[in-house]
Design a protein around this nucleic acid. Structure first.
Length: 420
RNA sequence: GGAGAGGUGGCUGAGUGGUCGAAAGCGGCACACUGCUAAUGUGUUGUUCCAUGCAAAUGGAACCGGAGGUUCAAAUCCUCUCCUCUCCGCCA
């Protein structure tokens, strides 16, 4: 949700900002027109209401014919207002419909571009491992070591599901635990949030209506809950509808949850292995930031993500996501892509977005400043780790004999230093 | 799953159709006073939207969980819905 007042004052800024996101800049003109119409109708309706309220106050004192006459007049006014309010309601719906289509304008440092082809590699960190053998892809390693079973998962649940087995289960838990501990030491508040949420939370974080087809619905028509695709949703929505004190800003949360994604429309893409799946685990960071500090907070979050990959000894590159690949909520996003020797490509492991006040407007998360004025907070989110880095570990730490060495930092938590 | 009770301002809690944005208390803020770090007194204290204004501000509308409805008029009546609590049942 954008601020209509700011759009009124500075339409060109918004046109430019959403154009970078590949959205139609004419939407700005349309919203301004709808806004004007809506305001005109509001004024008319409220003038009528004010008149009614005035007369209403006198009614208890009136009697007899005089009262009858006034009541009849009022009835007429009410009918007139009802007709007018119909129109107002329609205008409001049309307004909201366009408003919901407007994405958060991109930050000026976001590269222009249409899709992931145009993303910019900011820098590359770490040495790619050298092998004196042909490195395998993670599913080959996983099946051979009996730590991933895709066939039986397909039998039980369909494609894009998996069984993790044996040491890989322990390794995943160790990874999650390692990262969680690290963030708690950095002052994050750990959370295990609800894995199912209401529509409001999905709308508020910007997943609805834009990405509705990516979300699983639980018992439609009965429970109408939605399985979270990321704990960003329940953790960011934590303070929905609340007004915080300025001193409460700067809070850092780290949520742990499984994530559920339909992956509709991705048939044929990454069909093998566990890179793109319907269900995975994730440790997610969420910042509730002061508007003046969200950009430095965004860099901080990126640094933490880098630190995690560095701890694990995984070579990666930092990617500045271009406008067209940004999604509705984010004003800017970095992806961290790990080098996967088996695939011979960098692939997305983690990601961090500054959503500025786009989500907080929808969720109504505000704060009161020293002067008692109320403002919207900024929200940011970022992956601390997920199941994906397991793939990077497997492929980067594979040995000639098909075994996998465990990154040093995870050994104490695993209780073994090698798989196979 | 069955049976009840309830959702009111930052909090506690009154209020069953018009003078209720809403008593009272607590808290917060401001001022006053007191030789002490707190007590007392007085005042003040919500949010959203619209209009005018550079602004301070002024005027108007809305908000008593949410959405509809009845009515000239709704915190108060009706319907639906969400949430919380208690008891029973079931259960990791």
């Amino acid at each position: 949700m954008l601020d209509i007042k700011q759009i009124r004052e500075n339409p060109d800024y918004f046109k430019k900002g959403i154009a970078i996101k590949q959205a139609d800049p004419n939407l700005i003109d349309r919203i301004l027109k709808l806004d004007e119409k809506k305001r005109k109708l509001i004024t008319e309706s409220e003038t009528l209401q004010a008149e009614k309220n005035k007369v209403s106050k006198q009614i208890p004192q009136l009697q007899g014919d005089e009262k009858e006459k006034v009541l009849a007049d009022m009835k007429e006014l009410s009918d007139k207002q009802k007709a007018q309010d119909e129109e107002l309601k329609k205008a409001e719906e049309a307004y909201l419909d366009v408003m919901n289509q407007l994405p958060n304008p991109a930050h000026e440092s976001v590269p222009e571009g249409e899709d992931d082809e145009d993303n910019q590699v900011a820098r590359t960190v770490g040495e790619k491992p050298e092998f004196d053998f042909e490195p395998k892809e993670h599913w080959e390693l996983g099946e051979a070591l009996d730590i991933i079973d895709l066939e039986r998962a397909a039998k039980i649940s369909g494609s894009r599901f998996y069984y993790l087995k044996n040491e890989l289960v322990i390794l995943e838990m160790a990874l999650m635990n390692y990262v969680m501990q690290k963030l708690v030491k950095k002052g994050f508040t750990p959370m295990i949030p609800p894995y199912m949420v209401r529509e409001d939370a999905m709308y508020g974080t910007g997943f609805f209506p834009a990405d509705k087809n990516q979300i699983y619905t639980v018992n439609p028509g009965e429970d109408d809950l939605y399985l979270i695709g990321t704990s960003e949703v329940p953790v960011t929505a934590y303070y929905a509808g609340e007004i915080l004190e300025e001193k409460d800003l700067g809070q850092k949360f780290v949520g742990y949850s499984p994530c559920f994604r339909r992956e509709a429309g991705t048939y044929g893409k990454d069909m093998k292995g566990i890179l793109r799946v319907h269900q995975f685990e994730k440790v997610e960071m969420v910042f509730i930031a002061h508007p003046d500090k969200s950009w430095e907070a965004h860099e901080e979050m990126r640094e933490i993500e880098e630190e995690v990959l560095q701890d694990l000894g995984i070579p990666y590159q930092v990617v500045n996501i271009c406008g067209g690949d940004l999604g509705g909520s984010a004003a800017k996003k970095y992806d961290l892509e790990a080098w996967l020797p088996g695939q011979g490509k960098y692939r997305e492991m983690t990601s961090t977005s500054n959503c500025t006040d786009f989500q907080s407007r929808r969720l109504k998360i505000r704060y009161r400043d020293a002067d008692g004025k109320i403002h919207f907070v900024h929200t940011l989110n970022g992956t601390a780790t997920s199941s994906r880095p397991l793939i990077a570990i497997m492929e980067n730490y594979q040995q000639k004999d098909g075994s996998i060495v465990i990154p040093e930092v995870l050994r104490p938590l695993c209780g073994f230093d090698k798989i196979g």
